[in-house]
């Protein structure tokens, strides 16, 4: 009654809605980076919306099911195959005991979410099953999956979702190869030279291969210049340094002005680099679906626009619940 990991894939980990209340101890929220797709996969199966899933990154895992169950895959386009036969994503699939599931590399998007009926069953750590690998916390032994790992399933939903039920196209997220992400300028943005503060929003950046669940590093734009200053005591000599402070999830820092870094849900909780803006909560999922070398442009919004976008995001989730409830 378990799922055996034959090949772990590039970076597959157990994730859910994440954990709150421990950021002040350096323990970040973690959780599925694309929360919309993670929830969609669970809702398709009739699971609790926040049941634990596998987050599969770029190259998915190969899994052998020693248990009959249902699965659904949402998020990045990573052609799933059961016993080598291509299967549709965004749809309830039936798995028989002995079946093997694998994926083709991501054709679009970065992260696919594999939900299983009943969810991945693991003990919660600090209120969540999400993996925080830097702290060896939560998930499966506090780390990404490895070959030979055995996953067990939770109790299946009382009413099984009909096999073949699918997510309406209108509720599937598009996965463009370049995108504009909305940010709220602020934090230490005043420390930038005005021409840098303007140019940051005019240029297209591209995602560096040094991008992971902790943060997305960007390249290709003009380096940013900070205003010259006399360093405050304890801040460090470089004008991009600050006295070490907390980092918001989604905040963008630019060490030495060179390569902006967007912090995601496995963020380092603080450090000594000036942050110049924060990705609004509604657009964090979008960032996490960008592949290396794909393009990203930033659009500055104000708080009111950020809150409107937040309402739209919640309305989309509500639609998802109604369509699949």
């Amino acid at each position: 009654m378990h799922i055996k990991v034959i090949k772990p894939g590039l970076a597959t980990s157990v994730q859910d809605a994440g954990r709150n209340g421990y950021y002040h101890l350096g323990i970040p929220p973690s959780g599925a980076l694309d929360q919309y797709s993670f929830r969609a996969a669970n809702l398709l199966l009739g699971n609790a919306e926040t049941a634990a899933v596998l987050e599969c990154t770029l190259l998915g895992p190969q899994l052998q099911f020693n248990v009959a169950c249902q699965i659904a895959i949402c998020g990045a386009t990573m052609q799933p195959r059961i016993n080598g036969q291509p299967q549709p994503a965004h749809q309830v699939l039936s798995i028989a005991t002995g079946d093997t599931l694998d994926f083709l590399p991501a054709a679009a998007g970065m992260r696919a979410y594999l939900a299983v009926s009943g969810g991945i069953d693991l003990a919660e750590v600090l209120g969540s099953r999400s993996t925080y690998a830097l702290g060896s916390l939560g998930g499966y032994q506090g780390r990404r999956l490895q070959a030979g790992d055995m996953l067990t399933l939770g109790a299946a939903p009382s009413t099984a979702a009909p096999v073949g039920r699918s997510l309406p196209t209108a509720l599937q997220r598009s996965l463009p190869s370049k995108t504009t992400v909305r940010v709220l300028p602020g934090l230490y943005a005043h420390r930038l030279r005005p021409e840098s503060a303007t140019r940051f929003y005019q240029e297209q950046w591209s995602v560096s291969s040094e991008s992971d669940r902790t943060g997305y590093r960007l390249k290709g734009g003009t380096p940013l210049q900070f205003q010259p200053r006399e360093a405050p005591f304890g801040a460090g000599a470089d004008p991009s340094n600050i006295v070490d402070a907390g980092y918001p999830i989604g905040s963008i820092q630019v060490p030495a002005g060179k390569e902006p870094i967007i912090l995601l849900r496995d963020a380092v909780s603080g450090g000594g680099y000036a942050m110049i803006a924060t990705v609004i909560s509604a657009d964090l999922d979008v960032v996490a679906q960008l592949q290396p070398n794909q393009g990203i442009t930033f659009a500055a919004v104000d708080m009111q626009q950020a809150l409107q976008a937040r309402q739209h995001y919640q309305a989309d989730l509500q639609q998802l619940r109604q369509a699949l409830g």
């Binding site: 602020g186 934090l187 918001p248 924060t278 990705v279 609004i280």
Partner: peptide
């Protein structure tokens, strides 16, 4: 005081 997106308030 300055906001870090729609969910964070940062206070220097």
């Amino acid at each position: 005081y300055t906001f870090g997106g729609d969910e964070f308030l940062f206070a220097e």
